[in-house]
């Protein structure tokens, strides 16, 4: 069952973050319903069946949380979902790098993009210590990945200047 017992010092528990998934689920379900409102019944029936159950479950959850807030057992704070630690630990910076990684890889290819991503990410997480080792590890990992993905499994991963050069050499 839900744990809404106040913390030991009597403070109400922050439950705001727990509402994100149900609220997102409600928005998504309503969007889904909107896209099938004029569709044939074959496209609607299963979605309405599952979607209505989901909406009922979310409603029960929201009522339960609202009662917990009303009785002073909880408040709408988001707890430790987003804190300064996310910036300090480098989590936020690496998230930005990840987004850049998937945007850029289609032009620069697997090897170069992965090397840059690994080097920068590891450098951020190690606070810039022993950059030579970081560079060596990143290089070795890219070569291992190249051998595994392209040479061993013949996977068509995004090609860039390095992959084109390798194709010409071998």
């Amino acid at each position: 069952m839900a744990d809404h017992t106040p913390s030991r010092d009597g403070e109400p528990q922050p439950i705001g973050a727990q509402l994100i998934i149900p609220i997102a689920a409600i928005i998504f379900t309503l969007y889904y319903f909107w896209t099938i409102v004029d569709a044939p019944w074959t496209a609607q029936v299963s979605a309405f069946f599952v979607g209505c159950i989901l909406l009922i479950l979310c409603a029960i959850f929201l009522v339960r949380q609202a009662l917990a807030v009303r009785h002073g057992r909880a408040n709408l704070g988001i707890g430790d979902l987003v804190t300064h630690a996310d910036v300090r630990s480098g989590r936020l910076a690496i998230f930005v790098l990840t987004v850049l990684y998937i945007v850029v890889i289609q032009w620069t290819g697997f090897a170069i993009t992965t090397f840059v991503f690994l080097f920068l990410s590891i450098a951020i997480l190690t606070r810039g210590h022993r950059l030579g080792l970081v560079g060596l590890v990143s290089f070795c990992m890219v070569i291992a990945g190249y051998l595994l993905f392209i040479v061993a499994f013949d996977v068509r991963i995004p090609h860039g200047p390095f992959e084109v050069l390798m194709q010409k050499v071998f």
């Binding site: 839900a2 727990q18 998934i21 689920a25 889904y32 599952v50 989901l54 479950l57 029960i60 959850f61």
Partner: peptide, 14 residues
């Protein structure tokens, strides 16, 4: 929490 588990499961189904 079973209710949270069901919400997650049915969100997955959707």
């Amino acid at each position: 929490d079973t209710l949270k588990g069901l919400i997650a499961g049915f969100l997955g189904l959707m």
